[in-house]
Design a binder for these strands. Structure first.
Lengths: 209, 209
DNA sequence: GTCTATAAATGGATAGAC
DNA sequence: GTCTATCCATTTATAGAC
């Protein structure tokens, strides 16, 4: 077997991609335990031996897929928006808030959170990858921005790290908690918009100089 | 072992209680999928036919136990503390905050949350029971208290329901989110105490008249 | 009512043909 | 590399003895 110039990202064959796609969907929908390798093979339109030729076992498959998903979900969106210099802190914070909520408040984001929370005791790397690639980057960036606002005297933020978490807590909790408990429907864009405006107003009041 | 006038609440035999106790522990530790009826029978020191004579099937057993646990966890602690009239709003809010965090930030509370979030799609009644018996009662009581403070002009709370959620969000998020993701250890009493003080200060600043 | 033993089905993983 | 067919362990659930 000669390696051609095929392997650009990583040598993933078409079958492997089929498997990953099917498994992702099934794991997100049903968690780890109640998804069988039979079901994955069936939905991917491959046989079980093919499945096992690409992935060592079920745990490895799950770990690889979920870690990749955490990275995709995190890396893509958390680096932008912050500090288009020509906008007011109020508008920047609103943009940050809406970006965050848009990222999380949808079917995939919620499912990912469910899985991470449920399976991180059995797969510790899952929680770590999720945290490092997602929330941590967000909090670090937000903390840096708040530190800057404090240094410039625009806001008074004595503990930027705590302030970032509290901002995010107010932002998320109203929606994420009842959503995870399954007692409300996904909020509309309008609801999200209004909520963010309210939270930013509260936050600015807390940290008024 | 003769059953005397034991059964006060509901006719639960000794064996049934053994089963419930063992199953509760196992479900909390491992979720629904990966706990087998064999394991439950074994830990309860009963045979499988005995297990099945008391509970129709695994799903029913899970549902019954978890719903009962949600009720226990909710009913016990949410009704007290509010409004010992002789204390300042600041101190009452701090007491409320500490009570809530003490209730949730422990091994059982966290496990319960994991299960509810993970399994509420398959067992919708789980999320509903959890919400109605726990968080909802808390938020209703807090909302009522904030409404009163607003009416008395002590604080300015234009939307008490939202304010209650935001208070709880700031209170919980710092701990609950990284705990669920498995990336921090359980906070100490000291950390909780300091955090609550900070949150209450922020909340009072938001709603200063 | 409770247990031993087992049925019936499904799970993860593999041998061997193509 | 892929599939058919299968192995073996485990799972849910029950029949029948005590």
């Amino acid at each position: 077997m000669e390696p051609k110039q095929e392997a650009s990202t990583l040598p993933k064959s078409a079958k492997a991609l089929q498997i990953i796609e099917a498994a992702s969907k099934l794991f997100l929908s049903n968690g780890f335990g109640s998804v069988s390798m039979d079901a994955i093979a069936k939905h991917a339109n491959v046989s079980k031996p093919t499945l096992y030729s690409h992935f060592q076992d079920k745990e490895t498959l799950f770990s690889e897929i979920m870690n990749a998903m955490c990275q995709d979900a995190g890396a893509s969106q958390m680096v932008e928006t912050f500090e288009q210099e020509n906008s007011s802190p109020e508008n920047i914070l609103k943009a940050i808030g809406r970006t965050k909520l848009d990222l999380v408040l949808n079917w995939q984001g919620l499912s990912l959170a469910r899985i991470v929370f449920a399976e991180t005791t059995r797969f510790p790397s899952l929680g770590e990858t999720f945290w490092e690639t997602g929330p941590k980057q967000y909090y670090d960036a937000l903390e840096a921005y708040l530190t800057k606002l404090d240094a410039e005297g625009i806001l008074k933020v004595s503990n930027p790290a705590k302030a970032a978490m509290n901002f995010d807590g107010m932002l998320m909790w109203t929606f994420i908690f009842p959503l995870l408990a399954g007692v409300i429907a996904m909020p509309t864009e309008r609801e999200i918009h209004d909520h963010v405006d309210g939270i930013v107003a509260d936050f600015l009041r807390i940290h008024a100089p």
